[in-house]
Design a protein around this nucleic acid. Structure first.
Length: 468
RNA sequence: GUCCCCAUCAUCUAGUGGCCUAGGAUAUCGCCCUUUCACGGCGAGUACUGGGGUUCGAAUCCCCAUGGGGACGCCA
């Protein structure tokens, strides 16, 4: 049995979007599962729209998701000689021909066909023409598609698909400037790179019979195709910028872990019974093309958030600390004057939705409090609060080992001395130390803020209350 | 318009002719836990697009309709 070889072949005309990432993931999973190779190929034959910035963005996203490729990235722009050679071969074998039809003529042709309610397509006027070519026109080269018969293929996810050759026209395989087009370069590359399984978006279904015809004209049998449905926006419409994050890297910026995004993506169009949580290893182990769905699926941001929380709660603390580095720089938070990040992660991992929030909700561990939350002042800072805080401060001040237990005990003792419930003192203490109404449990919060700073902040709060 | 593909809760999905008075997850709503915010636990509501067949029996098979998506480029 030949080794499985899959490929992901994005065109660098923009960042890697969420749909592309999922296609890449499925392709990668299949190769891993089958012990095969995964190849990255950059389809940059559109010189007008391809940019180096897009190539970099795609590579960065692949790296962030850690979808490792065994070969590549290959660039089609570096293989022009090879494509030209194949086009020449097709010309010589009578499978291709020069076409001198201008763009204006083509437009007119399409319009007329649409008016007649026909499927717009090239009419093959130069296919067998013996006419003298018009002077000064640089021709394109078209593939001589079979006139009759049916192209059949057995799709990995959809089963048998058959398209009649009469539906297909003679597509352009080389532009008038000699640069090959997508359908040609894909075929040549898939042959040369020994691709056995092409997993791609179902927007390519219509291209498949054309590519199969070209392959056969070249004397090769086509690979196995698997067309996965597209991803829709939350409203069921085609995914676009107005649907929020479509750029994979934006998810990193917003504080999602790659583990969560991958887990979310793998469950979009694929399932393994009722299982929701998949580690990378499990995905590889359990992935099967039969379990791929045929229907398009709408993206559901809430579920991604849930998964992200799950990974925040369960990933090793060191991993989260590592991922926090990017946020640290982005949020310009200096952590040199505060608790170790590990401790903050442990304190916050169960109460935030993402990495960005984990840091933004932790600033008071590192930075002075500049103001109290307005609602908090109204609700928690009453005249008698000053007295409560004073008692708490006295108890806290006498603590020798600034740890959870003693801190907790000190707060309890203060309450007893005051003869009030913790509910009277706790919230105010929290506001005093964090400036906010929510934080980890009091003892953890105070521990992380530190003894000296805690006492100082309580003193400031007492002053604030007395002056207001 | 023509061709191709698709169709189970709001969303992601399980389901491959009887186990389905349709299961799980997210979200929502209750209740419990609780010093805040969360976590967690328990529970509730919500779906087989419609119509014809096939069959003793259809969410599951076939046909039609409807709806959605895609393709129809000297883009990929």
């Amino acid at each position: 049995m030949t080794k499985v070889r899959t490929r992901f072949a994005p065109s660098p005309t923009g960042y890697l979007h969420i749909g592309g990432a999922r296609t890449a993931l499925f392709s990668w999973l299949y190769a891993r599962k089958m012990g095969g190779d995964f190849i990255l190929r950059i389809e940059d034959t559109d010189l007008e729209r391809s940019t180096q910035a897009s190539v970099d963005a795609i590579l960065e996203a692949m790296a962030w998701l850690d979808l490792h490729y065994d070969e590549g990235p290959f660039y089609q722009t570096q293989r022009f000689d090879r494509y030209k050679e194949v086009v020449q071969q097709l010309l010589e074998s009578g499978h291709a021909y020069y076409c001198y039809t201008s763009k204006d003529e083509l437009d007119a042709m399409r319009e007329a066909q649409m008016a007649r309610k026909e499927k717009p397509r090239y009419d093959g006027r130069w296919r067998d023409s013996t006419e003298t070519p018009p002077a000064g026109v640089s021709p394109v080269i078209r593939f001589k598609n079979p006139l009759e018969g049916v192209v059949e293929f057995d799709d990995m996810v959809r089963g048998k698909i058959a398209i009649s050759n009469t539906e297909l026209d003679d597509l352009i395989i080389a532009r008038s400037d000699g640069i090959p087009t997508y359908n040609l370069s894909v075929v040549v590359d898939d042959i040369d790179m020994g691709i056995t399984h092409v997993i791609r978006g179902d927007d390519h279904i219509n291209n498949t019979p054309r590519q199969i015809n070209i392959m056969r004209a070249l004397g090769h049998e086509p690979p196995i195709f698997g067309h996965v449905p597209m991803i829709l926006g939350p409203d069921g419409q085609r995914l676009s910028k107005r649907h929020g994050a479509v750029n994979v890297m934006q998810y990193r910026d917003e504080g999602y872990t790659p583990e969560a995004l991958l887990n979310y993506l793998v469950r979009l169009g694929w399932s393994h019974g009722d299982q929701e949580i998949f580690s990378r290893e499990e995905m590889i182990q359990l992935f099967a093309a039969e379990d791929l769905n045929r229907a398009p699926s709408a993206i559901n941001p809430d579920k991604l958030v849930w998964l992200n929380q799950h990974y925040l709660k369960t990933l090793p603390v060191e991993d989260i600390v590592k991922q926090l580095q990017w946020q640290l720089e982005s949020q310009k938070l200096d952590i040199s004057q505060g608790p170790r990040l590990e401790h903050v992660v442990m304190a916050q991992r169960e109460r935030v939705h993402n990495l960005a929030e984990m840091l933004s909700a932790s600033r008071y561990f590192y930075e002075p409090i500049t103001s109290y939350h307005p609602d908090a002042i109204a609700k928690q800072f009453k005249p008698e609060t000053a007295n409560y805080l004073q008692t708490v401060q006295d108890e806290l001040a006498s603590i020798e080992h600034w740890q959870d237990e003693p801190i907790h005990a000190a707060i309890q003792t203060a309450c007893e001395k005051l003869g009030v419930k913790l509910g009277k003192v706790g919230p105010a203490l929290r506001v005093a130390v964090t400036g906010n109404t929510s934080s980890p449990s009091l003892e953890v919060t105070l521990r992380l803020v530190g003894k000296e700073r805690s006492l100082e902040r309580i003193a400031n709060a007492i002053k604030f209350i007395k002056n207001s």
